[in-house]
Nucleic acid binder design. Structure first.
Lengths: 237, 237
DNA sequence: TCAGAAAAGATTGCATACGATTTCTACCGG
DNA sequence: CCGGTAGAAATCGTATGCAATCTTTTCTGA
C-alpha cells in the first residue's frame, strides 16, 4: 500500500466505516467552530470534499442530525445546527442533571492511570489558554470539552458517555452562539479543583463542584433573544 | 415475521419521512417483543416487507442502531440488540440518574390537562394488566413504558425526552431478556403513587418514589450470566 | 466417516441514475 | 421601478446495479 495516499491523519479509521470517519471530522469542525452555525452542508459538497458518493455523505449527515449538531430539512438539506436560547437552556439543564452523577461515579473508579490522564489533559488545556490567537482559542474550547468527556469515560457507563458526547458537542455550539467572555480561564481552575476532589475520592465534593462549574458556564451565556426569534430565523443562513 | 401487517393508516406519516415511519414500526415491534433479541433484520427483507428500497430500509436500521435497539456488524447486517447484563446495569444506572430529575421537573409543570393524560394512561395500563393473553401482555409492557415517556414529555426538555425514549426502549429489551416475573402489577401501583405526588406538587416525594420504582424494576431482573458470556455470544443468533 | 477446500449463494457497501422538489434567474406586464 | 411568473439549475429522495465480503453447500482425499 502506498503511504502517499494517506493524506489525512484519519489513517487509523481507514479500515472502519467511512461514514463514521466523515462524521467525526465534521463534528470536530463544528465543535471547533470552523463551521459556523447555519452553514449549509450539502450532500454533494460533503461527498466531493471527502471523495465519497452522496450515499456515504448522507449517512454521515444523518448521524450528525441524530446528535443534534445538524438540522436537516426535507428536500432542503442539512445545516449546522443553530440552537435557540431555549435549546441552549435545555442542554445545560441536562448537563446539570447528568454530570454531577457522572462525577460521583467517576470518583469511585479513579485509578492512578486515570489521574495521569487528567493531569495530561489539564496541562494541555492550560497551554492553550496561555497561547493567543484564534487557533489556540479553538483548541482551548475543544480541550475544555475533552475534560468532561474524559470524566465520562472514567465513569464507565457507555450510555451516559454517549449522552455526554452529544451534550458537550452541543454545548460548544451554544457557547459559540451565546458565549460572552472567555469562560475557559476560570473553567480551567474549576477543572483542577474537580480533579483534586476526584483524586481524594470525595465524590460529594466533586459532584457539588461540577454542578457549580456548569452553572458558571451557563451564567456566562447571554441567552436573551437578539432582535426577536423571527429575525434570527430569517437571518440564520 | 409479520410486522407490517397492520394495514397502513398512512395518515400521519404519509408525507413525512418513510424511513422514520419504518423505524417507528420496527421499534414498536422490538419493544413489544414481537421481534426477539438477536433476530436478524436484513436490509432486503425489511425493504420488501415495507415495500421500499434497501436504501430506505438501511436508513431506518441505522436510526435504530443509534438508539441502541439494533446492533449492526460490518458486512454482516443488523440484528435486534441482545444487551449484556453489564449493558442492562448501565441502562438502569442511567435511568436512576435521569428520571428522578425528570420527575422533579415534571412536578413543577403539571397542568390539569397533564393530570388527565396521566389518568387515561394509567387506566389503560390497568386494563391491560387485568386482561390475559400474550397480546395484552405486550400492550402492558408498552403502556408501562409510556408512563415514563409521558412523564418525560411533561418535564419539557426535549433532549432529556429523547434520552428517555432510548432508555425506555432499551429497558424493554432488557426486561424481555432478563425479567423474572411480571413486574408490571406492582409497577402499576407505583405509577399511581408517583402521579399522586406529582398532582400535589411534592416534587421531592415524586423523585424519591421514582428512584425506588426503578430499583424495583431492576431488582426483578436476573442479571447473572447464564452459562457464561461466550456461550451466549455463540448462541445469540 | 470426517476434516478441509473450493464453489455457489446470499447480503452488505458503495456508486450512480433518475424523477421530484426547491431555489435561483430572467423576463414581462403593470 | 417593482412584483409576479415561467423556465433553468441545483439539490434532494429513492431505486437499482455491481463489486466485495460473508455464509453455506458441495466436493475431495484421507
Amino acid at each position: 500500500m502506498n503511504i502517499a495516499d494517506q493524506t489525512f491523519p484519519a489513517a487509523d479509521s481507514a479500515n472502519e466505516d467511512r461514514a463514521q470517519a466523515i462524521r467525526d471530522q465534521l463534528r470536530d469542525a463544528i465543535v471547533d467552530r470552523r463551521l459556523a452555525p447555519g452553514t449549509k452542508l450539502s450532500e454533494g459538497e460533503v461527498g466531493t470534499l471527502f471523495d465519497v458518493s452522496r450515499t456515504v455523505a448522507r449517512a454521515a449527515l444523518q448521524m450528525l442530525s441524530f446528535e443534534g449538531l445538524v438540522r436537516t430539512e426535507r428536500n432542503r438539506g442539512a445545516f449546522v445546527a443553530n440552537p435557540s436560547p431555549e435549546e441552549a437552556r435545555q442542554v445545560f439543564a441536562s448537563r446539570r442533571l447528568i454530570e454531577p452523577g457522572i462525577a460521583i461515579a467517576a470518583a469511585g473508579r479513579m485509578t492512578p492511570a486515570h489521574v495521569a490522564a487528567f493531569k495530561t489533559q489539564l496541562e494541555e488545556e492550560g497551554r492553550f489558554i496561555a497561547e493567543r490567537g484564534p487557533s489556540a482559542r479553538r483548541s482551548e474550547i475543544k480541550a475544555s470539552g475533552d475534560f468532561h468527556l474524559l470524566l465520562a469515560s472514567v465513569a464507565g457507563n457507555v450510555i451516559l458517555q454517549r449522552f455526554m458526547e452529544e451534550l458537550v458537542a452541543r454545548s460548544s455550539l451554544v457557547i459559540a452562539l451565546y458565549g460572552r467572555s472567555g469562560v475557559s480561564s476560570c473553567g480551567h481552575s474549576e477543572h483542577m479543583q474537580i480533579l483534586e476532589a476526584l483524586e481524594n475520592g470525595s465524590s460529594e465534593r466533586a459532584s457539588a463542584l461540577m454542578l457549580r462549574h456548569i452553572d458558571h458556564i451557563e451564567a456566562d451565556l447571554d441567552l436573551r433573544v437578539r432582535g426577536g426569534p423571527a429575525l434570527r430565523q430569517a437571518l440564520e443562513l
